[in-house]
Design a protein around this nucleic acid. Structure first.
Lengths: 329, 329
DNA sequence: TTGTATGCGTTATCAT
DNA sequence: ATGATAACGCATACAA
């Protein structure tokens, strides 16, 4: 199915209306013209079903009303939610969204950046942990969850505070010894602060805390070994677990049940993200909820902001706790 | 953050390399030029960090290498998976994707179509049940899951076959009386055929079958009343349920458990879609799996296909069954 | 207030 | 093989 040619242009409209090209342009852009002219032009537009050519417009005005949004994929519900919210915020402002799914591949990320630059997007919102990402400074760039440098605003949840909150909630609910579980990129990024907050709150409460941190790519089974080691045969090295994401909390809860442990009666589990079944039903586990709508709104506001207004380099938005059945409330 | 001006143009490259504009264009487009010229031009491109301007290119060539993809949202995991797969297929072919989330709102859908036309996209892939959607015939359009007419190719799963398969599997697993549950748009669309296939297979096997079909917007509780009515106090009007989607199967399973019924021991449940937890873990329920990758690939192939090659008006792709713990295997 | 002419960055046609 | 030049569709400065 290839495109048919010959969509009507402004010139066609002008001829149809019997006016000059410039007049048509003025009508379209809301610049006052004589009433009778306006009516004729509008009629011609209607009659020919004229649509302005954004490519000609963009070429001329050097403004494309398009933002590129880069995420690893649309498999993880968190990324989906981020993209969904950003899409809404952009649509509100009549901006278009170019979606770039990178599959965590630095080469694809870089390729998408080049594409976006060629495409003359008005900005890029990117969720990437690739420290070597090169973006020419001409293109406004907003990062989610990773701090690239003072010149690139980063928007994130209050990961540190969220980690603290997780520890506090577990302790409130009666836990005496805690564990922190994480798998993911070892690269510095904002979500890594979840651990720091968690540890600090444990220390403040004088509650012991064990860590198990796996590098990306390690098979999940390593966690099951860890659980066996600390919880098998009635051993209880800890009675509360904070998982770095809801996805991990979900799998860990499954493993615990397979071991014959009851959640939340024997062990309580808290995740992070605030994911819901099918995006809008119950929480998958007790969790620290990220303010995704606010993150999206902030990113969009920043990326569209006038460059002169110097943006903050890091914005952390508040999280909250939501019970989801894996803690004793 | 507004864009800085003055990205280098072909003219700058030509000046830097000391050649004519046309020569630069040829180098970029792989048209043979003298070796020494090529080298100089490439060096200049590198030095200036030149990026071709897609807007100028698109204006000139009337080809934008952009496809608009319209879905209701990125909340439902099924839509996310569709978008994810289409994105991959487009990226493979160096096409860009303009994402349009419509929220099921016909006005937004129509607005997005107009936007896409202005944007001179090379085609639209749309998942919409809006029967009144107007798309000018110049823009190649492919529909997912809804048949609009012979001139608009529709790509869908074999919903009828999937419905049959669901009945067959329930019967194979020992069910004697079945039920079909559905909620959603009453408008004619491909997924409605799931019921027809299910009914036909029940009739062929001489198995009785009860339906409960709710209009969009009806509160979910109507299903719980239905279940009470037919299954409370040891009554067993049916022992197998086919739900029109995994999302519904998930909720129904929860309701059954709340009623004290065991799944799959007392009642077996099959859904439709093939959704997995976090997009890549276990199935949420026993299910008829849609071939989303193939659907995506087919849509992309069709939308990019030469218009002269007259496309089929309906393509149904085969589904398969996957056990997911809500049936007795 | 209306119309004309020029240029945005690229491609393609045409002489050279 | 290379370089000058004319479109593509729109916006705008400027002339009428």
């Amino acid at each position: 199915m290839s495109k048919q040619n010959s969509a009507p242009t402004m010139k066609d409209v002008a001829r149809e209306a019997g006016v000059a090209l410039g007049t048509v342009s003025k009508v379209i852009n809301g610049i006052p013209v004589g009433e009778s002219y306006r009516v004729r032009v509008e009629a011609a537009i209607e009659k020919l079903n004229y649509r302005i050519n954004s490519y000609a417009q963009g070429l001329k005005s050097n403004k494309t009303y398009t933002i590129a949004v880069m995420v690893p994929n649309l498999v993880s519900p968190y990324f989906c939610k981020v993209v969904n919210c950003i899409n809404r915020e952009l649509a509100k402002r009549s901006y278009r969204m170019l979606l770039c799914a990178t599959d965590y591949d630095p080469e694809q990320e870089q390729a998408y950046v080049i594409m976006a630059e060629q495409q003359k997007v008005d900005g890029i919102i990117c969720l990437s942990y690739n420290p070597k990402l090169q973006v020419s400074p001409q293109t406004p760039l907003i990062s989610i969850d990773r701090y690239f440098g003072a010149h690139i605003p980063c928007v994130a949840s209050d990961n540190f505070g969220g980690g603290m909150l997780a520890a506090q909630k577990l302790i409130e609910n009666g836990c005496k010894r805690l564990a922190f579980l994480r798998i993911g990129s070892r690269l510095t990024n904002e979500p890594n602060k979840r651990r720091d907050g968690f540890v600090q709150a444990c220390e403040a409460a004088e509650i012991p805390c064990i860590m198990k941190i796996l590098d990306d790519g390690t098979p999940y089974e390593a966690f099951e070994d860890f659980l066996q080691e600390h919880l098998a045969d009635g051993k209880r090295d800890f009675d509360g677990i904070f998982c770095v994401t809801d996805a991990l909390a979900h799998r860990i809860t499954g493993s615990l049940k397979k071991m014959g442990l009851r959640v939340p009666e024997d062990i309580q589990v808290i995740g992070f993200d605030g994911l819901q079944a099918f995006g809008d039903l119950e929480y998958l586990c007790s969790t620290i909820v990220q303010p995704v709508e606010e993150i999206a709104r902030t990113c969009v506001e920043l990326v569209l902001e006038d460059r002169d207004a110097k943006s903050p380099s890091l914005i952390c938005l508040p999280v909250h706790y939501a019970p989801g059945g894996t803690t004793r409330e």
